[in-house]
Write a protein that binds this DNA or RNA. Sequence first.
DNA 1: CTGAAAGCGCTTACAG
DNA 2: CTGAAAGCGCTTACAG
Lengths: 363, 363
Amino acid sequence: MSSSRRATIGDVARRAGVSKATVSLACSGKRPVSEATRQRVFEAAEHLEWTASESARALATSRTATIGLVLARSPEVISTDPFFPRFIAGCESVLAEAGMGLLLSVVATEEDETAVYRRYATGRVDGVILLDVQTEDRRPALMRELGLPAVLLAPSPAAAGLDGADFGNVRDKSEDEGETTAFPVVLAENAPAIRDLVNLLAEAGHRRIAHVSGPLRYVHATERRNAFEAAMLEHGLDPSLVVDGDFTAASGRSCTLDLLDREPRPTAIVYANDVMAIAGLSLARSRGLLIPEQLSLTGFDDSDLAAHLSPGLSSVSTRADEVGATTARTLLGTLAGIAIPVTRVAGPTVIARGSIGPPPDLD
Amino acid sequence: MSSSRRATIGDVARRAGVSKATVSLACSGKRPVSEATRQRVFEAAEHLEWTASESARALATSRTATIGLVLARSPEVISTDPFFPRFIAGCESVLAEAGMGLLLSVVATEEDETAVYRRYATGRVDGVILLDVQTEDRRPALMRELGLPAVLLAPSPAAAGLDGADFGNVRDKSEDEGETTAFPVVLAENAPAIRDLVNLLAEAGHRRIAHVSGPLRYVHATERRNAFEAAMLEHGLDPSLVVDGDFTAASGRSCTLDLLDREPRPTAIVYANDVMAIAGLSLARSRGLLIPEQLSLTGFDDSDLAAHLSPGLSSVSTRADEVGATTARTLLGTLAGIAIPVTRVAGPTVIARGSIGPPPDLD
DNA sequence: CTGAAAGCGCTTACAG
DNA sequence: CTGAAAGCGCTTACAG
């Protein structure tokens, strides 16, 4: 019958015949230890199945080895958006390697969100990742108030406040060191992919191309819409066929309903995400439209479904896992004192599938 | 210029003119404190913006106020399955109220999974939730070895080892207290909903009904398949039209391809999840089949898309958020010493939509 | 009802 | 290269 109590560093020290300091040093490698001692310490640790208590270490070092992530979207979007799980998986791969954990919160209201960050700040996490940056985002200011290190994921330099626009991520001098206190930004640009999509459609001959946007309070949704409009203008096309969706299937359906009733109706629709596009595709088909012969459609996110619909849904791969990994790495760097102001990740890329074709002869 | 250092319980005690013990007791309410003292303590705490450091509390109480959840599915399924995010949101709602956090891990291999649990056991979490129980699940034994409290989510009593079948969750006496060491189980039965689905189809006149299963190493997938077969037999129908999918869109597509090539082909297909059903629906349509006139389809999970396709996809609502809340509550109870062996939650319910109709006149 | 003190299990200057 | 000691910031018996 083994003793049920978990071993402590004291037990290991005793068994190895050394001090607790030596055990700690031998395991962390923070200072050299003679090979013989190291051996004894490791043998003892292994025998006693000892690993340092994370709580004790947290108290001693003021490091929690945990980072925080809060998701503040509607249940519909959270349950449906492939970006979050992939992003999280990407984070995890680098966090796990660094022995760090991810504390996840999903909140329904701004009030809850603030409460969560305040709890995070009571020694629960070392830093946070800020997703879904909004036009007037309260979070950077809150993070500063709470003294929580953070990194921002943004779809454009402007969105991250890097072009002088201020949404809280302003640069200012901290009195003691003269450093900037702006938060590091990971940049995953959305605009180029949207432009590529419009180019593809315009070159196929489409002239009436519509856009179903995401909720415009999110800078990435605004970015996509702006990119759509800019690309349309570049082709000399009317950029005004835009309806505002909210990333849910319901809005994808109703926006498509709206667009299909226009006279003349668009020959192509660029959706701000896959779920809306799939709902739209389904609706169009049920109206008797052939895809892509009578209507071309594109999504965004490259969800698992997109590739396996018939025809396949053209979409945009956001490489959410890579973005997650880079973001986590950037945060770890920040925590280690190596702050990289801006990290640009490989942008999203268009994946053309059967849902795009030439426009019908309408005239 | 406010002092940048975070206030400690000592600062609060000094300012309130009381001992640290009194501050602690006043805030936790674990022992009565005179109203006057209480006032002073609260005033001081508020003024100093003090909240107890979670790390220090963790060390003092051997409680981390954190529970762990590991997701061990393929990227495709994790990014696509609406159950996980909803379940997590449900957990969070009760955890937040209890001041607890959720440590989330997503792993790719069994090896990584084991490593994560071992790290959890080093004072990182107070307990874990075990999802996606498998037929020979290694985790209950591992949790016992690590001394990690756990609760299991299972789709049937048998799946939870409650009918004598042993998958690690055996009952045995702990020497000191004579209690059972089996893990509490939250029961969300899958079988009734599948039976309802088959009933619906059979009563509409279908006789050749097929099933596309999930990966059968998961007991919930097996449950659904078994329930399908049993229901078919109850109606005197051939239960052998089963093909094994794996919950991905790709498998939904290929399994449907397989089924549509059978001679005679099924007039209805019951899929083990929505993603496979949506891929199947899309394929069938592209083959020129009218839905539901020539083929009826049903999913499982009631993803956001299901309700907004055209026609809507009949599905099964699993109330993942309620299940998550109940599971979290059960775990908190266990940690508080109130172990409820089995908690039955309201089972999934069928939601009939346009994708179901009478069978075509084939003969 | 309240205070002084010990203790949770680590890490990290400080001496040697 | 190693040890003795202090300290991280709480909580909780133990006295009074």
